[in-house]
């Protein structure tokens, strides 16, 4: 990365921290504000790395052990960076019997990551959920907000190509 790119990234990080700090200031001074603050932080940063957790702990005067405890307790919060696009594979009963597992295997192979991980270039994050309520289209894969039905392992490459 060139120096200017590094500077840009640092600058960008500072802006996010400033915005987070402002948000914390607006919250009632109480431990109860921790969850809304974590939501905000994850919205801003995409994930909750330890340095963000330490920042929150200091600004809210809460031990970092407790912040980490909350982040690790709720599955919604993640310490893994998120990719630009989130792939969600449905593993509900209908999708499962119609080959969702093979779809996951194909995605894993194509992207070189496991479920819950993000590609090195931060293009994709891979996750799975139980049922999207679209069983008629099984097996279903969601990429960001787009629902893709009747996905097969063969279609994966062309599907991913739509997302840069």
């Amino acid at each position: 990365m060139s120096n200017s790119a590094v500077d840009q990234e640092v600058e960008c990080g500072n802006v996010l921290f400033t915005e987070l700090e402002e948000f914390i200031r607006q919250q009632p001074k109480s431990r109860d504000s921790l969850i809304p603050v974590l939501h905000k932080a994850q919205d801003l940063f995409g994930f909750l790395p330890v340095d963000v957790q330490e920042f929150i702990a200091r600004r809210m005067d809460i031990p970092v052990s407790e912040v980490y405890g909350v982040v690790s307790f709720y599955h919604y919060f993640t310490m893994q960076p998120r990719g630009r696009h989130t792939i969600n594979v449905c593993l509900g009963t209908a999708c499962y019997v119609r080959g969702a597992k093979k779809v996951i295997e194909a995605l894993t192979e194509e992207l070189g990551i496991k479920v819950g991980e993000t590609t090195e270039d931060r293009r994709f994050s891979l996750s799975s959920q139980r049922c999207f309520g679209a069983c008629g289209l099984a097996p279903v894969v969601m990429i960001n907000e787009d629902v893709h039905g009747r996905v097969s392992a063969k279609k994966i490459a062309s599907l991913l190509a739509q997302y840069e």
Binding site: E54, P63, S65, V67, Y68, F73
Partner: peptide, 28 residues
Amino acid sequence: GVGTLAPRSRGFETTVGVGAGDYLEEAI
């Protein structure tokens, strides 16, 4: 009132965590 220790994760994975790391020497 130091708060080095806190429960971490959930269910069968639950442990007593130190700070935000794995080792006590890294925690306050």
